[in-house]
Design a protein around this nucleic acid. Structure first.
Lengths: 248, 248
DNA sequence: TATGGCTATCTTGCATACAAGACGGGTAAG
DNA sequence: CTTACCCGTCTTGTATGCAAGATAGCCATA
């Protein structure tokens, strides 16, 4: 709501402005991000825009098509599954390792769930998308581990892009109930249960996607030509296979 | 062994060369990374070096001290605990979600454990450090989720930096046995057990650190001046608090 | 009409130039 | 001897310029 302030505060908000735009479902997957445009919007030179892009690229949020442009990632169906799998692993591990819920934490979650309910009542789908992702980030924040928070924030951003691509209808009620159940287990101090519920919940959301609709209509063509079906990684370039111990 | 090839293959190996150097314990925490030096070593201009640095910064591997230089991170004791906590969460979540061990996977792990044993016999501490980290990356690779692999690779790099800072004596035997136990559980198909063992193992390793020795000898001074005790995050700058839903 | 090639334009890739700040050594004053 | 200050040097920060490639539209041709 308050971005696009062109000249004021010439920090490197570019990166977070974009992530924030994605987290709030204002930026769609596949959106073109022109270096020149961003540079003029933010009142800086291309250099800083490129820095932000590179950072976002290593965070798995944008991709560059050489000499064609930067684009917000459009996760393939395979990538989508990978993201959900990663989230299941991390979030369940996070919850299992949690100690207890402080009063403050309880308050945060309760008020968050209230917000969800309010948004559902208002029928504000965009806000709802945003909140549904936020719930998980909130939990991560409660865990108190900033590394996991950052990781999950980026995965949540990707998740939102995924849902913008593959989510035909929004099972908001189901998600909200899932969140309530998770909170219930946490409030009861049963974090093992919370972890299990979290996995279930993510499974449900993933199942609710229509991963058969291909946003890449060339995929079957691509595969019939036996080209690599699009590399799936959280990292861009040939980062695959970092020299691990044995160097040939 | 095969880096520092100055002119040949002017790709963007810079990033992975550094990560690889850390993973193999050849680059120590706190190492200064001069843009000019790297530029001449890799035969490129500072621009590309800076790109690599920025990427490594978002990966939590290097830090920049404004107008002073880039440095390989020196995790504080607090950060060290955060890293281990994150690894416990992720690795246990990963293992719990694993299906089964393929024959190929079994082979990979067995031969890896053989290598560990050989390195122990040879007393090659550097190689051992490298292998100890690699074991966990191998497991992640077996999981087949490239996102988790990348995350764990970076966390492993940080772990190695941590052990270079805080590990007084190397409990290689203990670690190796931990790995063997984890493998045993995996081979038996008991991934829940493997996850539990993995948590235990990481706990042991963390306990084996001497997190009281402060590589930042100013910390008590810093704290007595009530300055923030050094920000702990996987992300550098004011990335904290990405606009989540409620914008003000 | 359909097709092949050419060019104009727009994109990023990369290097370079210059500015701004940090640091260290020297020097002079106390 | 200690302290304060100044300046040269080295570092990164940022903008800009140019090159290389990609794309789209146009035109000639079959």
């Amino acid at each position: 709501m308050q971005d696009s302030h062109t000249s004021e505060s010439t920090q490197s908000n570019i990166e977070e402005a974009i992530v924030s735009g994605i987290l709030s479902a204002r930026i769609r997957p596949g959106t073109r991000l022109s270096e020149n445009q961003l540079a003029s919007v933010f009142g800086v030179s291309r250099t800083r825009v490129r820095e932000a892009m590179m950072r976002l690229e290593t965070r798995g949020i944008v991709t560059v098509s050489p000499r064609r442009g930067w684009f917000v990632v459009e996760p393939s169906a395979e990538e989508a599954m990978t993201v959900y799998e990663a989230r299941r692993a991390i979030e369940s591990g996070l919850l299992r390792g949690m100690r207890a819920l402080t009063d403050e934490g309880r308050t945060v979650l309760v008020s968050h769930l209230e917000e969800e309910k309010a948004a559902m009542a208002a029928g504000d789908r965009q806000r709802l998308t945003c909140l549904m992702g936020d719930f998980h980030i909130r939990i991560a924040e409660l865990g108190g581990n900033p590394i996991l928070v950052d990781i999950l924030r980026d995965l949540t951003a990707r998740t939102i892009l995924i849902s913008m691509l593959y989510q035909s209808e929004f099972h908001a009620v189901q998600s909200h109930e899932g969140h309530c159940r998770i909170f219930g287990a946490m409030a009861a101090g049963d974090f093992v249960k919370a972890a299990e519920l979290s996995v279930e919940h993510l499974d449900e959301v993933e199942t609710g996607l229509d991963l058969t609709t291909r946003p890449d209509p060339l995929s079957e063509l691509r595969s019939s030509l036996s080209l690599p079906p699009r590399t799936v990684s959280s990292r861009p370039s040939g980062t695959r296979k970092t020299a691990t111990s044995k160097e040939k």
